[in-house]
Design a protein around this nucleic acid. Structure first.
Lengths: 333, 333
DNA sequence: GAAAATAATGCAACCGGTTGCAAAAAGCCG
DNA sequence: CGGCTTTTTGCAACCGGTTGCATTATTTTC
């Protein structure tokens, strides 16, 4: 039923090769032939089958977009940007929702069956090993929002979470908070581990600070709220560095429940600067992750891999900045 | 470089057909051959190329997932569910972000190039014509969150927005509100048109009610906030039915800014019951859209179309329910 | 205007699979 | 064990394209 190359060739009175060349960038076709072919193609409503051509060219222009963060509104922005940027380059995102299936094997196999040209792993919770499995299978891969490494074994684009931990600590110290809490995301997430490390690194060399720590079970509102409700049962700290923004918002709701005031009674600083953080009824002080740059760079990197698959892995990390809003008290004069 | 059917056939000492049959459900292969083939395949790490096989079978198991709602957090839930349900059935979502490109032609062509088996259009703002273009091109299509029609020309799954408008109106009347506002989404969105219709239908036959109406420029926080700030310049109504939840949250932030109390000074009812609506610091009274049922049903319908492409178009609509939370005053005793 | 260089074209093989068909192998029966 | 039925197997053609190569047409050059 769908119209093929052959149909167009017959209608235009030329060979199949001629039709194929008409639709191939930089192939040799005379103006006359091209005209005939284009006319026939338009009349028949022909458009070339990308999958058939991929058989010989070895390129599908499909990019696997793999994530396990379908509950964090921050990632809607991530998907929006990724899909737009990929589309702009003529690439097509094949979306994979990992749910709790974090073993790379089955995903690798799936994406191979579809001959994706490359893979983007968008996750701040997956271990570097996940992306590494693709790399080892010689599938071009970039881990976005992944863990920093001095000499990465796989392409990674993201932020320096250790440095973010330091920034958070310094910020809280500068505001004069003395009893400070780390309320991390899931214990095993690399982002949690790294942020905690940087955070403690600074606080441990600062005299007169009392540090506590706890972990939410997920990067989600409910987990943040539950954890903060728990913390509020005893005497809470003066201020918390929360695992991310959505966790922070959960914590804020718990604090409001208890009738405490933010930032007077408890201060909160988040991380991500998701769209919602600037909403006036949330107004969260947070550490901004330069999402646009991260995603731009990830796409650029995966495209570079397509052209040069043997390109050695690279790590690209972007600086974060503190976004001052209303959930921390002002710096002491 | 990747291992093919031929490699496996040679290693196993059988014909290519034998290998193909081993991996084809219900094909005739002896146990002995199957064993040999599976052993060879495992050793070589073979997995069949889904795209090559699609050439002859005519099935890619790719489903185009098309949306223009990448800014509404409600749709993260939508994408989560769609991808999970499709994956469970062995289907692969090819994601298309419409941005402002709402002309179906280029999307249709794109999805044809990739020979998608079917298409799901997930949008409450696109006109029915969008999905219709696929239908007319004989591409199995389902419009999710689309507009209700008595005898639809294309498969649609969603809610009855007119009835939702009525529900909202009745709810506000029951609470004793007299000065009532409709704060719609984009003027041209079918969902806006329909909700407004049902809303006015009820209010126009209720004596003693004063109705006003206005429209936000998008289903977004900022648009909701801007519109409400505008409304608050003059004397606002007692209660508003807002286009959707994210719009409602924007409106709530504007109201809080002005120092007014919800629900005492102004009442708000939204629509969707997105995850965020139940967050304790939002606590939005809203009309719940049965998202799970809608998406289940959409996937089921698109699968049914794959098996029977000539299936006549069907409309499936689900009932909504009022979710009482904190943004409307209680019913008068 | 003829020879040489360049461009355009079609043939045929190939990409990685599937499948109808006829031949071969295996199973069944008396 | 021979004849008959059923199952398994390989051959070869095909799905919808691309591409190297040899052939033919066109252009350039003197």
């Amino acid at each position: 039923m769908p119209v093929t190359l052959k149909d167009v060739a017959e209608k235009a009175g030329v060979s199949r090769s001629a039709v194929s060349r008409t639709f191939t960038e930089g192939a040799s076709v005379s103006a006359k032939t091209r005209r005939k072919v284009e006319k026939a193609a338009a009349e028949l409503g022909y458009s070339p089958n990308a999958l058939a051509s991929s058989l010989t060219t070895g390129r599908t222009k499909l990019i696997g977009l793999v994530s396990n963060n379908f509950h964090n509104p921050f990632f809607l922005q991530v998907f929006d940007l990724f899909t737009r940027l990929l589309q702009e380059r003529g690439l097509r995102p094949l979306l994979v929702n990992l749910t709790d299936q974090t073993d790379p094997e089955s995903t690798l196999q799936l994406l191979r069956q579809y001959s994706v040209d490359g893979v983007i792993v968008a996750s701040s919770t997956l271990s570097p090993e996940f992306a590494l499995a693709f790399q080892e299978a010689r599938v071009p891969v970039v881990h976005s929002f992944g863990r920093i490494a001095a000499s990465p074994r796989v392409n990674v684009v993201g932020i320096d979470n250790v440095e973010c931990g330091r920034m958070a600590a310094r910020t809280l110290i500068a505001r004069g908070y003395k009893r400070i809490g780390f309320m991390g995301g899931p214990r095993e997430a690399t982002s949690t581990i790294d942020r905690r490390k940087g955070f403690n690194e600074v606080l441990s060399v600062t005299p007169g600070i009392e540090v506590t720590e706890s972990f939410a079970t997920a990067y989600s509102f409910d987990a943040g709220r539950a954890e903060m409700l728990n913390l509020l049962k005893q005497m809470p700290a003066d201020a918390y560095f929360c695992g991310d923004d959505v966790l922070s918002i959960g914590a804020l709701s718990a604090i409001a429940d208890k009738g405490l005031n933010v930032p007077k009674d408890v201060g909160i600083i988040g991380l991500n600067d998701m769209d919602m953080a600037r909403w006036e009824n949330i107004n969260l002080t947070t550490i901004r992750q330069p999402i646009r740059q991260i995603i731009d760079s990830s796409v650029e990197l995966v495209v570079a891999m397509l052209d040069k698959p043997e390109r050695p892995p690279e790590g690209r990390f972007f600086a974060c900045e503190i976004i001052e809003r209303g959930t921390l008290r002002p710096v002491k004069p």
